[in-house]
Design a binder for these strands. Structure first.
Length: 314
DNA sequence: AAGACGAAAGTGGTTGA
DNA sequence: TCAACAACTTTCGTCTT
């Protein structure tokens, strides 16, 4: 096992207790790529951890024995990671330097390899776009399956000639946004827009067009999907989280959620639940993490308390 | 002084004629 | 294609804690 891999494994093993409440009752939510404390609800680690091959190896020899395959095929590299790489070092596979008389030949091989690999403008664009996508996804701590899905969507978009007249970055951002929603871990448009210079409006527009042209099966996002993340950002207990979900369930029964922005509804439910549990957060704070305004929270809050008959002690 | 409240005007998107 | 419309935002003055 390489030094890097060893180090990585150490870091993963280190996190066994919640830094907030000390509980060791931690559960990894693979779907969302989050490590969550079951007792206080803190999301400890939002970043995705690649657990690597499922077989175990204890030294370098075993690693090479057990690694039956090379790197997995991935959509996030423009050629799906399947072409041959030729090193730029002038050494052979034993590390011996290559004699001068063979260097010219090697140079020609490299040149053609490069030409084959990125053969036309479309390939070049794809390579660039996927690189940009990787950067954005890394900034947002998105799990690998989101990246793969986003890459697939982007490839489809290219096939449908959707890039023409639009910026690559815009289409990349919209692909990521769509992938997040398809996998049930929605990020707000704002969050996506924060890691690119494409405007929120533009991303939304491309996203909607994608839905139509590519016929993506995307359900409207539900308020429930946001509760976990918002509560965690606000450092609210799991009781509040539970209560907020309950409020949402009641609201859904009375049709108070349809036609409303899901983030606004989620924000109001959290706001109410927090007050009920004496963990009051200001409208300002909740609005901040939910990406809506205080006014919207007030409106939803009023609706919810009135229609559901919830009495809030102040 | 900060937070909550609500009115008023503006924005971007959907819908239906 | 265009106007009406619903949801949401921005802004701002006022009240409450």
């Amino acid at each position: 096992m390489s030094e890097d891999a060893k180090e990585k494994k150490m870091m993963i093993d280190e996190i066994t207790r919640c830094p907030e409440c000390g509980s060791s009752h931690l559960v990894r939510d693979y779907e969302r790529g989050e490590l969550v404390c079951q007792d206080c609800g803190l999301v400890i680690d939002e970043s995705e951890i690649d657990l690597g091959p499922e077989w175990r190896a204890f030294d370098a020899e075993q690693t090479s024995e057990k690694a039956r395959t090379g790197a997995p095929m991935t959509l996030t590299i423009h050629d799906k990671g399947l072409t041959t790489e030729i090193s730029w070092k002038n050494t052979d596979s034993y590390g011996k330097s290559i004699p001068t008389r063979n260097r010219a030949q090697l140079y020609r091989i490299r040149k053609w390899q490069k030409r084959i690999k990125i053969s036309n403008a479309a390939e070049r664009n794809l390579a660039q776009a996927l690189q940009e996508m990787e950067r954005m996804a890394a900034n947002l701590d998105l799990p690998k399956d989101v990246r793969e899905t986003a890459a697939l969507i982007y490839r489809k978009a290219v096939k449908e000639n959707m890039i023409r007249g639009r910026s690559i970055d815009g289409v990349v951002a919209a692909s990521l946004y769509a992938a997040c929603r398809m996998l049930g871990i929605p990020r707000t448009l704002e969050e996506i827009a924060s890691v690119t210079r494409v405007k929120k409006k533009e991303i939304g527009r491309i996203y909607r067009m994608m839905g139509r042209v590519l016929k993506l099966q995307i359900l409207p996002s539900k308020p429930e999907d946001y509760i976990d993340r918002f509560c965690s950002k606000l450092k609210l207990s799991s009781e509040v989280k539970k209560r907020a979900l309950e409020i949402l369930r009641m609201a859904a029964e009375q049709d108070l959620t349809s036609g409303r922005g899901p983030m606004g509804v989620a924000a109001a439910a959290i706001y109410i639940a927090a007050i009920e549990n004496n963990e009051r957060r200001t409208q300002r704070e909740v609005a901040e993490v939910a990406g809506v305004t205080e006014v919207t929270i007030r409106n939803r809050y009023k609706e919810l308390t009135e229609k559901l008959g919830i009495q809030v002690e102040i």
